[in-house]
Design a protein around this nucleic acid. Structure first.
Lengths: 221, 221
DNA sequence: ACTCAACTTTCAGTTACCTTTCAATTACAA
DNA sequence: TTGTAATTGAAAGGTAACTGAAAGTTGAGT
């Protein structure tokens, strides 16, 4: 974790850097907008803490240019006086949060934690098996980089097999999972789904293998 | 887009809801923490606007419980007096922003926009998809260089699909987003909006594709 | 070689989605 | 207020995709 601090007041900058260090975040500090931006050109940061009142440039322009270089890095603006207009403009330019001076270090830390929690919040929902990828949220399947078109039943069966991660699954237990109580389909329908899935999977390195008398499992060829 | 507003002052709540509607955000309003939380149990929201001073519960407890139900939904706290301790605690509980009463509606809107930009990962106000462009601030749509005239419902649906950026969205979740509590339209209305949108999009390289059993998504032809 | 589980194909019934119509509602202008 | 236009969504009928029973074929294990 590394933060960029652009702030002309040395004393405040020191406090901020100390606070960051306390959270185990490394930081670079520059007292001028231009210096900060050229640092952003050469290294990647996880956070920008920006003072809007800089001696050399308008803070909002610094923000704008920074966002062009590192659009996904969250930005926390720290300033003494911010007009409503500047706040609106800043938020629209991509600032993520504001802190009005003077502030307590506890609040700075809480805001930084909140920023990171938000950005880190993208949990992985993909299951992969060979060339096959499955997104648990959208229930979409991909083969290499092609979307794989499946019917609802096929999706359910394949999801079960993927979840089992290469272990055998009996027809009975597949049926138990994909049929609900009032559905009263024959167990043999499972064979049909497997057949249709195999056809669709035939062009890749993932196959459904039969363990006679036991069930099916996913294998890589 | 759908917001939950928990605020006991009817007048302020009205203003907020009006403001949200102006941004084409559907909202449910409840004057008590308990009511709001039970709503959160049953429907998914994209935003919580929470007053800390509620007659029935401590606002921070409402926040805490809400975050357990919908951890990824951003929260904007609106309150008259907030101690530094409460701010820090709120941020640690997962609040994303604060607004001190009294506030200007312009600032509320800017903050809401900023929150959405963050969660939707979108740093600029324009979303583009093929020939289709959408301005998040003005809610205007353009096809190539022609403005695209849509009805409010159509705008909401298309905005959702755009925000999903080419990923599938089920009819159910589309309905959850664009209808509020007391609206009780049938889920099949979604099919009609899709149909009307398709007609209006027919002259360009953007299409709404059906994933049978899953939902709809935007594609480029 | 025999047996039976598994494979494959066919096809009618079902379901999900599409499309049009139209009455009710809402928004808005006069 | 009244009149007019736009928007909305329920109803109904159509279409194409999905489903799974039936029946015949294949092939692994004994």
């Amino acid at each position: 974790m590394k933060a960029l601090v652009i702030e002309d007041n040395e004393e405040i900058a020191d406090c901020i850097q100390q606070s960051l260090q306390h959270m185990n975040i490394t930081s670079d500090h520059f007292p001028l907008g231009k210096l900060g931006l050229s640092a952003a050109d050469v290294s990647q940061y996880n956070l920008l803490i920006l003072d809007l009142n800089l001696p050399d440039m308008d803070g909002l322009s610094v923000l704008e240019r920074f966002k062009k270089i590192q659009p996904d890095t969250p930005v926390l603006i720290v300033s003494a006086r911010i007009t409503v207009e500047a706040r609106v403009k800043g938020l629209d330019l991509g600032a993520d949060d504001y802190l009005i001076k003077p502030f307590q270090l506890a609040e700075l830390e809480a805001r930084v934690r909140a920023l990171f929690r938000r950005t880190a919040n993208e949990r992985c929902t993909q299951i992969k098996f060979g060339h096959l990828a499955f997104n648990q949220n959208t229930k979409e399947y991909w083969l290499k980089d092609q979307p794989l078109e499946l019917t609802p039943r096929e999706r359910s069966v394949l999801e079960l097999l993927l979840r089992k991660n290469g272990r055998v699954m009996s027809k009975k237990s597949i049926a138990d999972h994909i049929f609900n109580f009032d559905d009263e389909a024959d167990i043999s329908s499972i064979e049909i789904y497997i057949h249709r899935l195999r056809k669709k999977l035939s062009k890749c390195n993932v196959a459904i293998t039969t363990k006679r008398g036991l069930g099916y499992l996913l294998t890589q060829t």
